[in-house]
Simulated scan of single mutants.
Amino acid sequence: MYSFKNDYSEGAHPRIINALVESNLEQTPGYGEDSYTEKAVEILKQKIKRDDVDIHLFVGGTQTNLTAISAFLRPHEAAIAANTGHILVHETGAIEATGHKVISIDVSDGKLRPEDIKPALDAHTDEHMVKPKLVYISNSTEIGSIYTKNELEQLSKFCKENKLFLYMDGARLGSALCSEENDMELSDLGRLVDAFYIGGTKNGALIGEAMVICHDSLKEDFRFHIKQKGALLAKGRLLGIQFLELFRDDLYFDLARHANKMADLLKNEISRAGYKFLINSPSNQIFPILPDRLIEKLEENYSFYIWEKVDPDNSAIRLVTSWATKEENVLAFIKELKSVIDSEQ
Score class of each variant (00 low, 15 high):
Gly240Gln: 03
Leu238Lys: 02
Ile213Val: 15
Lys235Leu: 11
Arg257Tyr: 05
Leu244Glu: 15
Ala263Glu: 04
His215Pro: 03
Lys261Gln: 13
Ser217Pro: 02
Phe224Trp: 03
Gly240Phe: 04
Ser217His: 07
Leu238Phe: 09
His258Cys: 04
Leu265His: 10
Ile213Ala: 11
Gly240Arg: 01
Tyr252Gln: 07
Ala231Asn: 12
Asp250Ile: 02
Arg248Gln: 14
Cys214His: 02
Ala256Asp: 11
His225Trp: 12
Leu244Asp: 12
Leu218Met: 12
Leu246Asp: 00
Ala259Val: 02
Leu232Lys: 14
Glu245Phe: 03
Leu244Gly: 04
Leu238Cys: 04
Phe222Gln: 02
Ile241His: 12
Arg257His: 13
Phe222Leu: 10
Leu246Asn: 06
Leu238Thr: 06
Phe243Ala: 00
Glu220Val: 09
Gly236Leu: 04
Arg237Ile: 05
Arg257Ile: 02
Val212Arg: 06
His258Glu: 10
Phe243Cys: 01
Lys229Met: 08
Lys227Phe: 09
Asp221Trp: 14
Lys235Arg: 14
Ala263Val: 04
Ile226His: 03
Gln242Val: 08
Gly236Ala: 03
Leu251His: 10
His225Ser: 15
Lys227Trp: 07
Ile241Trp: 10
Leu244Gln: 15
Phe222Ile: 10
Ile241Arg: 14
Leu233Glu: 11
Leu238His: 08
Arg257Met: 06
Ala256Arg: 01
Leu218Phe: 09
Gly236Ile: 02
Glu220Phe: 12
Leu251Gly: 03
Gly236Trp: 00
Ala256Thr: 02
His225Ile: 07
Leu238Glu: 08
Cys214Asn: 12
Val212Asp: 13
Asp254Met: 11
Phe247Val: 13
Phe253Glu: 15
Gly230Ala: 09
Asp254Lys: 15
Gly230Pro: 08
Phe253Pro: 06
Glu220Thr: 10
Ile213Leu: 14
His215Trp: 01
Ile213Trp: 01
Ala231Gly: 13
Leu246Lys: 09
Ile241Ser: 10
Ile241Gln: 11
Arg237Thr: 05
Leu232Gly: 04
Asn260Gln: 09
Asp254Asn: 13
Asp249Tyr: 07
Asp221Ser: 06
Gln242Gly: 01
Asp249Lys: 12
Asp216Ile: 04
Phe247Tyr: 12
Phe253Gln: 11
Ala259Gln: 07
Ile213Lys: 01
Gln242Trp: 05
Asn260Phe: 05
Phe247Arg: 00
Phe222Tyr: 11
Leu251Arg: 10
His258Pro: 03
Leu265Asp: 03
Ser217Leu: 10
Lys229Pro: 01
Asn260Trp: 08
Asp216Pro: 10
Phe247Ile: 13
Asp249Arg: 13
His225Thr: 15
Val212Met: 07
Arg257Cys: 13
Asp221Glu: 11
Ser217Phe: 01
Arg223Asn: 14
Ala263Thr: 11
Glu220Tyr: 13
Gly230Tyr: 05
Glu245Ala: 02
Lys261Trp: 06
Ile226Arg: 07
Arg248Val: 14
Glu245Val: 15
Asp249Met: 07
Leu251Cys: 05
Ile241Gly: 07
Phe222Gly: 07
Leu239Met: 08
Leu251Met: 11
Arg248His: 15
Gly240Thr: 12
Asp264Ile: 07
Asn260Ala: 04
Ala256Cys: 05
